[in-house]
Design a protein around this nucleic acid. Structure first.
Length: 110
DNA sequence: AATTTGACGCGGT
DNA sequence: CACCGCGCCAAAT
């Protein structure tokens, strides 16, 4: 049970622990998983999360710039942005304004 | 089994 | 500022 698919579950676990109004980056999660530099895997896992219909706040995960790179994966151009703003995260030009201010680092918080 | 791709990150030109 | 290549690892075809 604990070890399900593998990588996906690892990412789900960390991402699902992101506090409300906070965000993190693919690289940060990858680093926490021990695979620093493999940020692609994090994106891959989250991509699967949408197929699994889990409670994965993937909108809280953005790239290193705080840019909503994955917004297109949400089906809409402003779906991800709307979710973030709905949580109190200010977005400007598809980018998190206070990104570094609300940045949640699993390697530090956990 | 091999090749391509992918919601990235960073450096170099 | 734009484009390119490398690294990283797993999944899909």
């Amino acid at each position: 049970m604990s070890q399900d698919t593998g990588f996906f579950q690892n990412v789900y676990d960390v991402v699902s622990q992101i506090p409300y109004g906070r965000v993190t980056s693919y690289g940060a999660v990858a680093e926490y998983l021990g695979s620093k530099g493999s940020a692609r895997m994090v994106g891959w896992a989250l991509n699967s999360s949408k197929y699994h219909l889990d409670g994965i706040p993937a909108h809280r995960v953005v790239n290193r710039q705080g840019l909503l790179t994955g917004k297109r994966a949400f089906g809409g151009q402003n779906t991800m942005r709307d979710l973030l703003e709905s949580e109190g995260v200010h977005i400007e030009d598809d980018k998190i304004s206070d990104f570094k201010d609300i940045f949640w680092d699993p390697a530090k918080e956990l």
